[in-house]
Design a protein around this nucleic acid. Structure first.
Lengths: 362, 362
DNA sequence: TTGAAAGCGCTAACAC
DNA sequence: GTGTTAGCGCTTTCAA
């Protein structure tokens, strides 16, 4: 009892509309997808008939002939990680606002799965967003030649990318710790395969040198809350009084473990996370962290991709939103270049003054 | 330098394979999708050639002729809600294990968007999973006639559904509170449009009556952390000493607000959440909540859907997983019936003994 | 077991 | 402007 008209068994095709209105199927096609190339009156008649018959375009057929699917694939390396939820949220919003479809693919940290997905995607989607790809820059660049790609948190030459400027955040974090009297900072590393991990560490080393702070690094930890326990133990063992963790998941896990062990945060140990994911503000104590515009990164990635795919789209049929993706959050940065999104430090209760007699980190 | 063979500009089609092997395209098609209906030797030859040429089936074309897309749409009412993350995680895993594609759609709490999506989906996917649908039972049933559907947390007659048994959890929660000496329980309601909300409230009334507990209910709250502040104020104002919130988001928001106001949890007020989402274990204090097998619900929904769509699938080509969805987590419950997944209460530190002189709730 | 031919629903030249 | 004619890449009768 809503938008669907008279239903017969079969799905309505442009032929049905053609028969109903007495025009050729091709005219119907035009009236629906290129409305200006058709007499205004017949155009109206056709659209009317389409509505009455409850016509819904067959996207497969449309894709087969036109080569365009109006879908984009979003690849995440681990759908279990809350970080990606924000990315997905951003891509989803921007995509649906433009009337496009999102194909969500979890590559499960596997380069092979990623390759397979990229291969399969070529016919299913017009482009893809790669977040935290496990492929080499060369591999990414190669695929980018065939399929329009935008990468998030990677920077392969020639491929448009969206970068979250966590190095900038690292600088703020160190400065914050210094202002609290800390002189030693321990980096709780993320996975070796992570591009961001290296990037953060290098930024940390650079800033630390400039500010005269000693830094150390403990071995890689998988980006899960559960990894935080081992990380906390290692940090305590290293005599650390201030840690910067690869991400909030690890940091939150550390908080829990430190509490269990009776290590007070921030009195005995300051902890800084990265990303400001869901939960960082209500954990115990609330986490000082580098707030990343993650959702925005997702939106921006889609906007860049859609721009490359030819932004203008006549709203042919149904679907909530239509028209090109709107919004003013696309920083300047050339269509094929890299866009860097700023990060800022959000200070909460997990950081505080350095202990009076700091133990020395290893 | 991996799976892709000699590339020419164009994508490889079955024609290319046919030319390369000297058979007809139709034979190639058969060799790839119905391998047993072809001479074993030529079959091998064809598959070999396909591999060497780097053939990837065009899913559009396949869908156009066969009518099957090997994709399913998952509709969520608000992708912003962590509850759905777990659902999506479950659906994604089960789907990719079977070599299927997931189309993620955010209906943004709008019945119209949901209708539109369902219409559009018919050609894009072979079926859909509806979580927390905003449509009427009749509307859902009507769509289910055309498109295979599985609903989560709804129970329209004749449509297979996956139910998370939060009413069972409510019973445990009340009993827990009673055992702590509570005699008054306040229900912090979720949105009126939520089917689960009514269901939980009715369960609460029923159990409370049986156990001789007084219950009250405060007005609806949107399922966001931010709504928790108003909810907490209302609860305090009502003189409550024990609350059961519609979900963890609201409960976590309440925790924060109560802390700000100096109301101690659980000494002054016990708080119970629902769902056990990410964060419920590390908020402050950790939340007593009804643990729901959300991810499992997603997996089960997909398994039911795939079963209805004809589980057996010959692994024609690439893709990480192939073969029918495996796993042993499909509870008995008829293919077209309702499957109820049990919930259990996880007691953490947000609940404790009733205050000595309880104030009376309104 | 294999090939030839038709056609899925739509778009895109090309004529009229 | 609009109709006619070919396909897109694949599956699927129907014969051979």
């Amino acid at each position: 009892m809503s938008s669907a008209g008279t239903d017969l068994g079969r799905r309505v095709t442009i032929r049905d509309i053609a028969d109903a209105t007495g025009v050729a199927p091709s005219t119907v096609s035009r009236a629906l997808s290129l409305p200006d190339r058709v007499n205004h009156v017949t155009q109206q008649r056709i659209q009317q008939a389409a509505r009455e018959l409850g016509y819904v375009a067959n996207s497969q057929a449309r894709a087969l002939t036109s080569g365009r699917t109006r879908a984009v694939a979003v690849l995440v390396s681990d759908i279990t990680n809350p970080f990606y939820f924000d990315v997905i949220r951003g891509t989803q919003h921007q995509l649906s606002a433009a009337g496009w479809t999102q194909l969500l693919v979890d590559t499960e940290e596997s380069a092979d799965a990623e390759l397979a997905a990229l291969g399969a995607i070529a016919t299913k989607a017009d482009g893809a967003v790669l977040t935290a790809s496990r492929l080499s820059d060369a591999q990414i660049a190669r695929f980018a030649e065939r399929t329009p790609l935008v990468v998030v948190n990677r920077r392969p030459a020639g491929v448009p990318s969206v970068l979250i400027d966590t190095p900038g955040g690292v600088e703020q974090a160190v400065q914050h710790l210094v202002s609290l009297g800390h002189r030693d900072v321990l980096y709780v590393a993320g996975p070796d395969s992570s591009w961001s991990n290296e990037r953060r560490w290098r930024a940390l080393v650079r800033v630390a040198k400039r500010l005269g702070v000693r830094v150390a690094r403990i071995s890689p930890h998988a980006p899960f809350v559960d990894s935080g326990a081992a990380a906390a133990d290692a940090a305590v063992n290293a005599g650390a009084t201030a840690c910067i963790a690869f991400n909030d998941l690890i940091a939150i896990g550390m908080l829990t473990r430190l509490r269990e062990r009776g290590v007070r945060v921030p009195e005995d140990m300051s902890v800084v996370g990265c990303d400001d994911i869901f939960g960082a503000d209500f954990c115990n104590p609330p986490l000082t962290t580098m707030t990343s515009p993650i959702e925005r990164a997702g939106r921006v990635a889609i906007r860049m991709l859609l721009a490359r795919l030819g932004a203008a789209h006549s709203g042919a049929g149904q679907g909530p939103g239509s028209g090109p993706a709107s919004g003013d959050d696309l920083p300047d940065g050339h269509a094929a270049g890299a866009v860097a999104l700023p990060t800022h430090l959000t200070v909460r209760e997990s950081t505080g003054p350095a202990p009076a007699s700091p133990r020395r980190p290893t």
